[in-house]
Amino acid sequence: MFVQKTLISDNPDFTSLLTVDGKLFSLTHFESPRPGAAYLSELEQDDQGKLTVKRTKAVDFSAHGGLWVPCAGSVTPWMTHLGSEEYEPNARGFYESTALGKGSIRDFMRYWGLYEAGANFTKEKAMAGGFYPYRYGYPWETVVKSDFTETTKKLYSHGRQAYELSYVMPDSRTVYGTDDGTNVFFTYFKASTAQGIHVYIMNTFTSLHVLSIPDIFSSLLFAVSFCRLECRHQLLRQVHPDVGRHL
C-alpha cells in the first residue's frame, strides 16, 4: 500500500511581491492541507522584466504554534506581507469535547509530527502536543529583510475571526478585516500609532547609515525616489493632507 508521507499543496491563496532595499522577494501562503504553510522566495528580474526564483525557504511560524488556514492576503503600505488565518477553530467545541476524532485539528497536529489515527484523539492530547484553539484565527505579518531573513508575528490584538484577509488603509492605522462565512461580521482595527512613511524613511536611512541628515525635505525626496509613481502621491499626502492636492 502506498503511504504518502509528504504533503503537497495545490492551494496557494495569496502571493505577495515585496521590494526590500532594491531586492525582490515573494511570499506565498498555502491554505490547505493543514497545517498551513508559507514560503519565502528571493527573485531576480532581468531587463525584460522576467522574474526568476533564486532561492526559496519555509517561513518560520514556530513562535506561534504554526499556521492555521491562511486564506487571502495583502501587502502593507510599508512593504510587508500581511497574511490571514480563517475558519478559526471553535474553542467552545474544543473545550467541551470529550473526543475530537477526525477533523481539522487532528490533521493540524502533523505540524508537530503528532498525527494520531483512530477515535482516541482528545483535546488533552492536542494541548499536550501544543495545540490551543485561541492561538489561531489572526492576521499575521512577515517582515522580510534583504539578507533573506524574515520575522513573523501574529497580530493578536486584532482578535480571532475567519480572516479572508486584512487590508491596511493609506492612513497606515486602519486595518479592515473580512470574515468568511455565514452569520459573520465586518470589522476594522485602528492601530494606536501609524506605521508607514515615518517607518519607511527611518528604515531606508538606517539601512544606508545616513541618519545624520536632519533635513526633512531631503529625507522626503530621498524616500520618494525609492517609491514608484503610484505610491508617491500617497506618501506625500501622509506627510500633509494638502500636499497631494498640488500634484
Binding site: A72, S74, E164, L165, Y167, M169, P170, D171, Y176, T178, D179, D180, G181, T182, N183, V184, F185, F186, R237, P241
Partner: peptide
Amino acid sequence: SAAMYTLQWYMSLTVH
C-alpha cells in the same frame, strides 16, 4: 472622506 479609500478586495461577508 478626507482620505481616499478604495477597497477592492475579494470579500466574502454574509450578515444575518
